[in-house]
Design a protein around this nucleic acid. Structure first.
Lengths: 149, 149
DNA sequence: AACAATTAGATTGTGCGCAATCTAATTGTG
DNA sequence: CACAATTAGATTGCGCACAATCTAATTGTT
């Protein structure tokens, strides 16, 4: 039962270390790590020119695997910062549509260049990172299907 | 900038999924996931018959890479549950010694057997999990040294 | 011995995660 | 149409994470 041999702890510690590694960038952008993940999704949707009527809170939650209890207050803070707009859907008044505002859109290039620089600095070959990531998705899938309610 | 291609998100999502996978066990033990990690360290120290005078809050923090702002309230809750004892060191009055109590010690066997069963159920070969874990430690080390303040 | 510097924890404040519950709008069924 | 069931978010409450700050004890230097 050695801590160092627990995969769960390796995941937990490495995930937090990665978040820490993002702090310098996030600090200059003025956002938090989960807010950055939300922006990743919104940037992607924006670039894909996806129907804005589908950019709901639950669609974001599906992508990020987060529920409304986490996203609602987070999005409200991002709205206060002027990064996104939150408005009720006209067709279905139950949904809340999240729209990327220009201020949020403009952070994309900064984030992109920071990420490129950080990757270069990382002393791990890119292929290994890609392989690691693939293994993580496999594990995630398995965890989802095994414990899937 | 596709979300699915971000290693940071793969780590984040998989780590949370792993925590979720532990929930059924943790619920029966009556503890949280970080509290379980604390117990893993305390069990290990207990089995190694380590000098109790070295089981300080900061020693725990070193193992788990957590600071006192996280550990202090967490350990207080574990003390309330009767899992551990917290007492000031006699030699150095600045330190707080954490002692595993019987109630906390007794959870070890339950956790161990649950873990074995869960691993069996997981449809990923054990060698791949070990390899994945090794990659994670490498990445963690790199992140530590790169961003190390 | 005196006192600056260091060290160990504790405290405070903000922001997640997530379970549980609630509200309001929509959909399905007879 | 009526009404139960479903769906989308919002709310509440608790427990982390972590930065920043504070307190108190200890150590190093002169």
């Amino acid at each position: 039962m050695n801590l160092d041999r627990q995969l769960c702890f390796a995941l937990y510690a490495t995930s937090r270390a990665m978040t820490r590694a993002y702090q310098p960038m996030l600090r200059t952008l003025g956002i938090t790590y989960p807010q950055y993940l939300v922006l990743l999704v919104l940037w992607q949707w924006d670039n894909e020119q996806r129907d804005p009527g589908q950019s709901t809170v639950s669609a974001l939650g599906d992508q990020l695997m987060l529920d409304s209890g986490t996203l609602t207050p987070l999005l409200k803070r991002m709205e206060l910062q002027g990064l996104v707009a939150r408005e009720r859907g006209t067709l279905d008044e139950r949904v809340t549509l999240i729209r990327l505002k220009d201020e949020g859109r403009q952070l994309q290039s900064l984030a992109r260049s920071w990420r490129a620089a950080a990757l270069d600095q990382l002393a791990v070959p890119k292929e290994r990172l890609v392989a690691l990531q693939k293994e993580l998705w496999t594990l995630l899938d398995t965890l989802q299907s095994t414990g899937g309610k």
